[in-house]
C-alpha cells in the first residue's frame, strides 16, 4: 500500500499539473502570471493543421514501424528456427546487436549514413547502380518519414526476434510432429500451426513497443528535427517545439491531455481485444 502511495504521487502529480496548465494561458516568457482561459487552448487545437498532421505522423511512425519490425522479427525467428547449438547462439547474438545500440547513437549514426553526399547508403546504391543521383533520404518530404521509420525498425527488430524465437521453441513438439505426419506444407504449417501459438506474444510485445515508440523523441529530433516542413513532426516533437521553443506551456499541455485521452481509449480497446482472445 505505501508503494501504491508513492506511485500515485509520482504518476499523479505531473498528470494533474498538466491538466491544470492546459486551462491556462501560460507562456514562460510572459512577465504577468498565467491566467485561466477555460477551453480556449482546446478550441485552438481543433483548428490547428499541424496538430492533426502530427497526430497522423505519430500513428504512421508508431504503428508502421512496430508492424514492420514485428514481421521482420517473425521472419528472422522462423528463418533461424531449425538451427541448433553454437550456430544458433552466435547468430542470435549477432542479430541482437542493434538493440544494444543507444537511441542517440542510432539517430546520429543513421543521419550520418543517410547524408546526401558522403552518406554510405547513397554511396553503396550509386556504386551498385541502383540510383543514378544521390537521394535526399531525410530531406525529401516523401522520404523523410519512411527513412526515420526504417531507422526505428532497425533498432526494434531484435526485440521481436528474441521474443518470437523463444516462443517458437516453446511450441509443444507433439503439435509440430503431428502436422509433419499430416504432410502439411511449410507455409500452411507456419500459418495454421505456429502463428496461432505466437499470437499472444505478438500482441503483447507489439503493445510494449507501441508504448515505447509513441514517445520516441531522440531519434526523430536528432535526425530531422521534425522536418522537412512538418513531414516528420510527431506529437512529441510538436509539443517539444511548443513548450521549449515557444515556451507556450498552456497549449503544449492541452495537447498532452488530448493525447492522454486518446491513448487511454486505445489501450483499453487493445487490452480488451487481447483478453477476449
Amino acid at each position: 500500500m505505501p508503494a501504491l502511495g508513492v506511485l500515485a504521487l509520482v504518476v499523479g502529480y505531473p498528470v494533474l499539473y498538466t491538466a491544470y496548465l492546459s486551462t491556462q494561458r501560460m507562456n514562460l516568457l510572459d512577465t504577468d502570471p498565467s491566467r485561466y482561459i477555460g477551453t480556449r487552448n482546446y478550441v485552438r487545437l481543433f483548428g490547428d493543421p499541424v496538430f492533426w498532421s502530427s497526430l497522423e505522423n505519430t500513428a504512421i511512425y508508431t504503428f508502421g514501424s512496430v508492424i514492420v519490425a514485428a514481421l521482420f522479427g517473425l521472419s528472422l525467428a522462423l528463418l533461424t528456427e531449425n538451427l541448433l547449438g553454437w550456430r544458433f547462439r552466435s547468430i542470435r547474438a549477432l542479430l541482437l546487436v542493434p538493440w544494444a545500440v543507444p537511441f542517440v547513437v542510432v539517430a546520429f549514426l543513421f543521419r550520418f549514413m543517410f547524408l546526401q553526399d558522403g552518406g554510405v547508403i547513397n554511396a553503396v546504391l550509386l556504386r551498385l547502380g541502383a540510383i543514378s543521383s544521390p537521394v535526399l533520404w531525410l530531406n525529401d518530404a516523401n522520404l523523410a518519414l519512411p527513412s526515420t521509420m526504417l531507422t526505428n525498425i532497425w533498432t526494434m527488430t531484435p526485440f521481436f526476434f528474441l521474443l518470437l524465437s523463444a516462443a517458437l521453441s516453446s511450441i509443444p513438439i507433439e503439435v509440430i510432429e503431428s502436422a509433419r505426419i499430416d504432410r502439411a506444407p511449410t507455409w500452411s504449417m507456419v500459418f495454421h500451426i505456429k502463428l496461432p501459438f505466437l499470437r499472444n506474444e505478438l500482441l503483447i510485445s507489439g503493445l510494449l513497443m507501441v508504448i515505447s515508440n509513441v514517445n520516441d523523441f531522440a531519434k526523430i529530433w536528432a535526425m530531422t528535427e521534425g522536418g522537412p516542413g512538418y513531414a516528420t513532426t510527431t506529437l512529441v516533437v510538436y509539443v517539444y517545439r511548443l513548450a521549449f521553443g515557444d515556451f507556450n506551456f498552456g497549449y503544449a499541455s492541452a495537447i498532452g491531455v488530448v493525447w492522454l485521452v486518446l491513448l487511454l481509449v486505445f489501450a483499453s480497446l487493445y487490452l480488451r481485444a487481447i483478453r477476449t482472445a
Binding site: N27, L29, L136, N139, D140, A141, N142, G227, P228, G229, Y230, R241, G245, D246, F247, N248
Partner: peptide, 23 residues
C-alpha cells in the same frame, strides 16, 4: 523578440517545403 521563435518554426518549415518538395 517573443514572436521570433514561434515564427521561426513556421517560416523555416515553409523554407524546407520550398527546397525539398513540390508544394
Amino acid at each position: 523578440g517573443a514572436k521570433f521563435a514561434p515564427a521561426s518554426t513556421a517560416v523555416m518549415a515553409g523554407v524546407q517545403q520550398a527546397v525539398t518538395g513540390t508544394m
